[in-house]
Every structure is written in structure tokens, then in C-alpha cells.
Design a protein around this nucleic acid. Structure first.
Lengths: 144, 144
DNA sequence: TTTATATTTAGACTAATTCTAATATTCGCC
DNA sequence: GGCGAATATTAGAATTAGTCTAAATATAAA
């Protein structure tokens, strides 16, 4: 029986291209962070990512992990999800979608359906009931 | 010309009734907090409320303000709005509605339209453009 | 290269929130 | 009303996610 190939990491040139497309200089640290972050679609906190980066053996400071995630979010590479004052998640999938948050388990999962709430209500995760729908539309001032 | 009556505060019995309806014991501190909070529809942080309570001359500890807002939110008297890790607002209007958050000014305002995003896009606050739509549906495990 | 600009770092710091455990108040019942 | 149990309040300490500082490195530009 053949051994199973490990899931391949995002190929080198994709990360480089992503960064270029979004106007982000690629440094050693940013590459390490991006490799871990974009290996798969995930919802991850800065601290979790810091730990995962450590486990690769590469040294990247905590400040850099925080700064880099903020930068990636500004540049549209990741989405920031503010669950409460102690839980900020980064979503490596930046395509337009929304989330279920289970207040009992602390898990965050994607909403596949469209935005209309009656769809959402029919699609709740197994064994859960709806608590509250939080919709915040973030706007900024038009530059004149 | 007649002088304009100041807006009246929430009458005493309304607060008492609200609390009873939502299963919250009314104490001196909770009454002071509720009087300030429900005087009008507003988006307010715990610290702002703490200051406002101080200005009434009543002494209520900071811990109590925080605990009480958490309790009120649990009991459905107010809505918690998590903007980012340093900004938690409490909305004294607990009826079903959503928000615009201006990232430049830090102001939070109600969305009057329904949930569908194309409506939202037509109703942005004067002089702003859309940044991002954050929708989180909070669910909890069904009690078996 | 040489100089300028951008990035990273350790560790100190901040600010929002929670915790602790002692005290006070209120509730439910006689 | 009075009494014990349950709840609520408090000051201040503790926690924790995240930011700041300013010195050291690395990258880019000339």
C-alpha cells in the first residue's frame, strides 16, 4: 500500500504573485507567515498563527505576526473577523462570504448561502439554533 | 413663544417593567445604569456609560457597569456590537436592526433598510463608500 | 557600493475587561 | 418585621490581546 502524499503547500510562485498583486513586498518573515496562513482556508487567531510559525522552525517575532496580519488585512489578502473583545480571527479565504459563530464551542464556520437571512436560517450548522444576526457594514469617507 | 419641554426620561415604571419582563432583579445600581442607558437610543461603550453614571452623582463601580451590561445583553435588553478588539458598543435599542460603522470617524449608525445588501449599498451614509460587509450569525447548541 | 527606505525585533507598555474575595443588599419565607 | 440563603456590589489586582519603542537588519534605489 502506498503512503499518502502530504497536502502540498501553496506553491512558491503563487504566494509571490499574490503579494505582488496586492502591493506587498515579500520578505523572509512574510513568506513564512503566508506559507502557513494560506496552506488552506482557515480561521485563525494571531496567536495561533504565531505558534504554528514557531513549529515550522522559522523564527518570526510576535510583533511581526501581528503587524503582518494587519497589513495583509489592509491589502485585502485576508479578512479580519471580530467576534468579541478577546477573539479576532483571520480568514485566509478572502472571497466574499460570511460566518456562523457557535458561542458554545467557539467555532467559526463559513456560510455558503447568500446573504438573505431566511436562507441563513435554513442552513444553520447541525444541532444549533440561531442566537443573533450581527451585520456591520464598514464604510469609509470618500476621498474628495 | 412657549419654551420647549426637555425630552422626558424613561418613566420609572417602564424600567421596572422591562427588567421584570426580562427576568432581571432591579437594584439601585441597575436602575441608575438603566436610566442613563435607556434615556435614548444610543451606541455606547461600557466606559462611556461608566462616566455618564458618575456624572449623575450616583456611585456605581466600574465592575458593576461591566457586569450589568453583560447581564442586560444576556437577557436581551441591549445588543452588544463588537467592532474590533478595543471597541465594544452597547445598543440601547434592542429591536432587530443593523449598523454602519465609519472606520474613519468611529461612528456607528443604524441601518434603516432591510438586510439585502443591494438596499444597503443605496443607503450608505452621506459622503461614504462601502468598505466591507461583516455578517456573523451567532448560533448556540440546541439543549437536548 | 553608498545611502535611503522599509522591516523586524525584544520587551515594555496600554487599555479593555475580568477576577477575587470581602462586604452589602435583597429575596423568600415564617 | 426578622432571619438565613442567595444575589449583587465593590476596590483594586490580575489578565490578556494587541501596540509601541527605538535599536538593529535587511532591502531597494541611485
Amino acid at each position: 500500500m502506498e503512503s499518502i502524499e502530504p497536502l502540498s503547500f501553496s506553491p512558491t510562485r503563487d504566494i509571490a504573485q499574490m503579494m505582488a498583486t496586492h502591493g506587498v513586498n515579500l520578505t523572509r518573515q512574510r513568506r513564512v507567515i503566508a506559507d502557513v496562513l494560506f496552506e488552506r482556508n482557515q480561521h485563525i487567531t494571531a496567536d495561533q498563527l504565531f505558534d504554528m510559525v514557531k513549529q515550522t522552525g522559522s523564527r518570526v517575532s510576535k510583533a511581526t505576526v501581528y503587524n503582518t496580519l494587519r497589513l495583509f488585512a489592509q491589502k485585502g489578502l485576508v479578512r479580519e473577523i471580530f467576534i468579541d473583545s478577546t477573539r479576532t480571527f483571520y480568514d485566509s479565504n478572502n472571497s466574499h462570504h460570511h460566518h456562523f459563530y457557535n458561542v458554545d464551542t467557539g467555532y467559526l464556520v463559513d456560510i455558503k448561502a447568500r446573504l438573505a437571512p431566511h436562507f441563513v436560517e435554513q442552513d444553520l450548522p447541525e444541532g444549533t439554533s440561531m442566537d443573533v444576526v450581527d451585520l456591520v457594514v464598514r464604510v469609509r469617507n470618500k476621498r474628495p
